[in-house]
Amino acid sequence: MLLPKFDFHEPATLEEACQIMAEYGTRAKVLAGGTDLLVDMKKKLSTPKQVVSITRIKEMKKIETSPDGLKLGPCFTVADVAASEAIVKRWRALCAGAKALGNPLVRNLATIGGNVVTASPSADLPPSLIAYGARVVLKKTSGERVVSLDHFFLGAGLTEIAPDEILTEIQIDAPPLYSGAGYINEGIRKCRDCNVVNVASFITLDGPDGFIKNARIVMGCVGSTDLRAVSAEKLLVGEKPSETLFARAGEAAMQEAAPRGSAESRASAEYKKDMVGVLTSRTLHLAWKEALGH
C-alpha cells in the first residue's frame, strides 16, 4: 500500500506550525501519532497535500500536573497515559481507556490529541475525558481559545477545530473530593479491538459514603458523537449509591442511546443498547468504589 504524494513539514515550534496551517488550511493535516491519519491516507480516504508533523515540538509532549489538575500536550502518547502514575492516581478512568486502546504497538505511537481530534465515536479516550469535564486549547496564529469537550465533537470525524487551528493542550481539572470514575469498553477480543460500546461514568459524593452530588455518564459508539446520558445522570443526583440505583441508571441510559445497527457496524442497535445498560451500571460501580477510596 502506497501513501499518496504530499509535502512533509516538521516544524520545530508551535508558531511555525500555526503559520503552516494558516497558509494551507484544509489542504493540510496535522500528523501526531499517525495511527489513524496514515491508515486513512493509505486507504485513500484522506489525501492531504501537506502533512504537518507536530511531534518534534517539545511542549506538544508535555505533562504538567498541579493540585488543580492536569495539562497534557496532544502528542503525549496513549502508552504514556496508560503508564503515568500521576494520571492513574487521580484520573483512573482515563488510564483505563488508554490501556484499552488498540494494542501495545499502536499505543506507543497513538497520541491523546490524535484520539480526540479524530473524533471517532468509538474512540477510547474521549468518554473519560468528557466525564472528567476536560477542555482543549485550540491555537492559531491570531490567538487561542479553550473549548470544553462537551461542545467539541460535532459528528463522526467532525470537531470544533478550524482548518487553521491546532489542538495544543488538553486540560483536566482535579476531581473534587469523594469523586470517582470508571471506564469500560466492550469489543470482541480482549485487546486490539475497536469498540462495540464504551461508557465512562463519573460521580461525586457529598461526603464520605454520602449522596451523589454530581454525575456524568458518557456513552460511546451509540451516536455520531459521544453522548451524555442526561436523564441517567439526573436520576442519580441526590440519591444514595447502590447497585439497584446503578441498574436503574443503566436502564435510563439505554433509553438515551441512539445506536444505529447495520451490517457495517460491529453490532446491532439492540445489542449496543443493552450494553449501554450493562456498562453504565458497571462503570458507576467502579466510580463508586473509587469515590469511597477503594
Binding site: 494494542n103 470482541i188 477480543r189 480482549k190 485487546c191 486490539r192 475497536c194 451490517a263 457495517e264 460491529r266
Partner: peptide, 16 residues
C-alpha cells in the same frame, strides 16, 4: 467485504 483487514477480521491475539 466490510472487514478485509486484520483489525475487523478478528483472529486471536496472545491475550485471547
Amino acid at each position: 467485504i466490510l472487514n478485509a483487514d486484520l483489525a475487523e477480521y478478528k483472529i486471536p491475539s496472545a491475550l485471547d
